[in-house]
């Protein structure tokens, strides 16, 4: 503690501010590094190209939705429906595509359109009917899941052949899906930093009444943010179709909690107004790498849940230390 104090006193106030605000994120990345070290020394397969490719893809699957989730949480909202929407999206896209390359474009547009529609409905209920986001999206979780399972409880439809190939495509050593995630990460970071929309998200999460009185178009921003979040879920549904090749209704369960976990570990406040893309990426990587490593080391999957829980508490405890 004394050491930290002495280190801190050697910095300028703005450096200190930066460290205090972002210190925990460094800790998250430090922990990821430790996981890599453990993996490299304790497991033969962990550092293999095959496994790392896998980790990169899995990060994209979780991370793309986590980005959408983060945007919503920044406004002090939440989206519990993303898992169910991934499920509905894989079914709708598989049925629409039905193995025909000719249907590819139509199926993708239809699925993204579905996401847009769901997001706008969320926005409408939050904005105009003034129902709390938690309740709106909790209802939506149930409804979308119900619709999905009434479409089918067994795999239906199928992806076209070239769409299945999308999953395994690489540019150099890097899977295209992972690159897509990286592009979305950068776009989100730019959105938050350099656009009015991005700044409005923080403002609304900071204090929605102050935002309204400052002339922020609160409703429009909310429509936008729920639409974006739902679209990330639809995109992820499409990625799952590419991976599974069929519309598997077992896909999607629990994604909402996984994304919320990643966002929280990444330092975004559940009360809104605070959070960074780099933090969310850290949260995603931490969850994915840890799950992967525990499998590699042959750890029982129930123990995985336990460890994940402990990490959430530890991460949030760390964030609570800032400020004082």
């Amino acid at each position: 503690m004394n050491l930290t104090a002495r280190f801190m006193s050697g910095l300028t106030p703005s450096q200190r501010l930066f460290l205090r605000r972002h210190g925990p994120v460094f800790a998250v990345y430090g922990f990821i590094l430790i996981l890599f070290l453990i993996g490299a020394t304790q497991s033969e397969r962990f550092m293999s190209v095959r496994n790392l490719t896998n980790v990169a893809r899995q990060s994209a699957f979780l991370g793309i939705v986590a980005l959408g989730q983060m945007l919503v949480i920044l406004t002090a909202g939440i989206d519990l429906s993303v898992g169910s929407l991934v499920k509905l999206s894989i079914l709708v896209s598989a049925l629409a595509m039905n193995g025909e390359p000719a249907n590819l474009g139509m199926a993708i547009l239809l699925t993204l359109g579905l996401g847009l529609l769901v997001g706008l409905i969320h926005g409408f209920l939050v904005n105009e009917v003034k129902i709390a986001p938690f309740i709106v999206t909790l209802a939506s979780l149930g409804i979308l899941r119900g619709v999905s399972l009434s479409i089918s409880t067994s795999p239906v439809g199928s992806a076209s052949r070239d769409f299945i190939m999308f999953y395994v495509q690489k540019i150099g050593p890097i899977p295209v899906i992972a690159l897509m995630f990286v592009v979305l990460l950068i776009l989100t970071a730019l959105l938050l930093r350099y656009t009015a929309f991005g700044k409005y998200l923080y403002a609304i999460g900071g204090n929605v009444e102050v935002a309204r009185l400052s002339g922020v178009p609160v409703k429009r921003v909310r429509y936008g943010v729920y639409a974006l979040c739902s679209i990330t879920a639809s995109i992820t549904g499409l990625l799952w179709l590419s991976r599974m090749g069929v519309g598997d209704p077992a896909i999607g369960d629990g994604i909402e909690l996984q994304t919320i976990t990643a966002v929280i570990i990444g330092g975004t406040s559940l009360f809104g107004g605070r959070g960074t893309v780099i933090g969310t990426l850290g949260g995603v990587l931490l969850l994915v790498v840890m799950a992967n490593l525990l499998v590699m080391l042959g750890v029982n999957q129930f123990v995985q849940g336990l460890i994940q829980g402990i990490i959430i508490v530890a991460a949030v405890a760390l964030y609570k230390q800032e400020g004082d």
Binding site: Y202, A203, G206, N207, E209, V210, A211, L213, G273, R274
Partner: peptide, 8 residues
């Protein structure tokens, strides 16, 4: 309550 984003 109405004028300032205190956490921003």
């Amino acid at each position: 309550a109405h004028g300032l984003f205190t956490a921003l």
